[in-house]
Design a protein around this nucleic acid. Structure first.
Lengths: 324, 324
DNA sequence: GGTATTGAATTAAACGTTTTTGTGATTTAG
DNA sequence: CTAAATCACAAAAACGTTTAATTCAATACC
């Protein structure tokens, strides 16, 4: 690997001049600048990031810590984040905590030790961000806001309202709820948006809390079998909805003929499964890129204290809801 | 952040002794070692990775470059790789090329510039590895072997043979082939394994090449509609198979009643879609962890020149094949 | 015409480690 | 009992950058 010294030697100037020229400083003459640029080009010189990092304290790398890459919601997010980061010349360093709070902590430590400039984080542990506001670098939460932190997330409450509205339009008044985990803020907001947009004559036939990974506990399976007159199941996300559809299918209950179902997220599989899933679309790509932009601003210090971004959602009508 | 100097001061020894003690060198006395350890503990000292990197040339970070995180095959792989890496104290830096060869190249440059110690790579560009054998750091290819490189991948040919065998057992003799891209070695091997295990009386009714991303070109859609007497469709991977099932369903052709179909990979969705997909299971988790292990060995230089690993696959019978 | 000002370059210090070299003190060997 | 070897530690150099301080020449000002 060619070093800055080699470039300096080849160009016949000092290393300082090379550094200044390459970094576009104004204190270098046009002829010297030319020579430096040519020499650097000829040698294929690339600055040594570790050396730069030591001097400047900037790594040009960011962390991305997610609960579960296997969940298409997060893999789409990750793809968007990585691409945007790369376009900004930033390296994206991945942590997949597999929904384990201690692994998450370990990952955050690894990232800080490597000196990443900032972290995009979808927290799994409920109390983690509180303890770790002091990672010493900007953090942007994604999908799961917490008071006191920058975040970019979808308007989950609005999604819930859209769903309630749609349910009503299609004539569903008795609802089964497969809500997401109580510890996850976005799940709470979806649920709250949904029930708060409830008119008098609608009611919840049953409700059970399930994880976002789509694994259905016995309680959930029993509730779906027992029915209690519910004509529409509102799932906490698409993964849950799709798992539920599979379970129902195995037990001879057809969607949407016997019961309707809606999801949340609009992961790519929502339009692939049978029947295609009616759901709320989150702008996953935009969430990822905006999160990177926000983080970058925070890193450069060109922004207010804790800016947040809330992105609109929309209802995607497909085949899993029958009007009655 | 506490530096090694702080530790040295607190322990009342020189920085050299701190470094030696922390790195388990033998030339430091037991009392001094104790003092150093205590001081480091008390200050919460973590060595500055960039500084270490500059001195040692080792980053303790590895690159992971994949064609498409959105594809569950790769996200499962990525999860396994990241977790294993973290368990070894390595940071996993992600590149998602979105199947674009130039983005891939850009990503590889970014990784080398950051000085990652090694790279785990599933190449999309056909000629890329050839050009880039000289990244100056160990490379382990994953899923897509190339002569002259370390690789860990599944026994794709064996998978093809298992499929042929199963097809025969279930009485299928006219086959439709939705083969993977010609440029992808593993796709070729699956196909070759399949047709080479063909007895005389089996024949290919039609074949069309499609991308691994599950997008079906017009040619493929027409072939599926025209049928040509094929009773079994052999897809290049699960994504293709599932897309095909969706397409067939939309056109009133039922799987497996009207036509059977098999996939390859056993991504997690294979058991979620309806009907559940019969497929070849690759040990995705093992592939990821073994790749990291192999890379680590290469980095430490404790291994032969270009070791490769081929992992066995197995047939998973589910509901998408009907015997006739 | 002398002095302040600007411009373009150089020198040298600094970042936080690891590692080589150096140095007394203590042990071992002959 | 002295010479050699070992041990435990310290001092200093090095890694590849950036940047503050410095120099020197040329230009501008009064």
């Amino acid at each position: 690997m060619a070093t800055i010294k080699d470039v300096a030697a080849k160009a016949g100037v000092s290393v300082a001049t090379v550094s200044n020229a390459l970094n576009g400083k104004s204190n270098v003459g046009s002829t010297a600048r030319r020579k430096v640029l040519d020499a650097a080009q000829a040698l294929g010189y690339r600055p040594h990031r570790a050396a730069q990092a030591m001097r400047t304290g900037r790594t040009r790398a960011i962390g991305l810590v997610l609960p579960d890459l296997t969940n298409p919601f997060f893999s789409q997010l990750a793809q968007a984040v990585e691409n945007k980061a790369r376009r900004l010349g930033l390296l994206a360093c991945l942590i997949d905590s597999q929904n384990a709070a201690d692994a998450e902590l370990e990952g955050l430590n690894l990232l800080t030790q490597h000196g990443v400039d900032g972290i995009i984080w979808c927290p799994v542990g409920a109390r983690l961000p509180r303890l770790l506001g002091d990672l010493g670098r900007p953090i942007v939460l994604i999908d799961r806001p917490r008071p006191g932190f920058s975040a970019v997330h979808a308007n989950n409450a609005m999604g819930g309202r859209l769903l309630a509205q749609h349910a009503l339009q299609q004539g569903h008044v008795r609802i089964g709820l497969l809500s997401g985990p109580r510890t996850v803020e976005s799940a709470q907001q979806r649920r709250h948006g949904f029930v708060s947009a409830f008119p008098e004559r609608m009611e919840i036939a049953w409700e059970v809390r399930v994880g976002f990974d789509g694994i259905l506990p016995r309680e959930a399976r029993e509730a779906m079998l027992r029915r209690r007159g519910a004509t529409l199941i509102v799932a906490g996300n698409d993964l849950i909805a799709i798992s539920a559809m599979r379970f129902l299918h195995e037990h001879g209950i057809e969607v949407p003929a016997d019961v309707s179902i809606v999801g949340f997220d609009d992961i790519s599989w929502a339009r692939i499964v049978t029947p295609r899933l009616t759901t709320i679309a989150q702008p996953l790509g935009a969430m990822g890129t905006r999160a990177v932009e926000l983080l970058q601003e925070r890193i450069c210090g060109t922004t207010a204290q804790n800016p947040s971004l809330i992105l609109d959602v929309s209802l995607i009508e497909r085949d899993s809801v029958k009007s009655i």
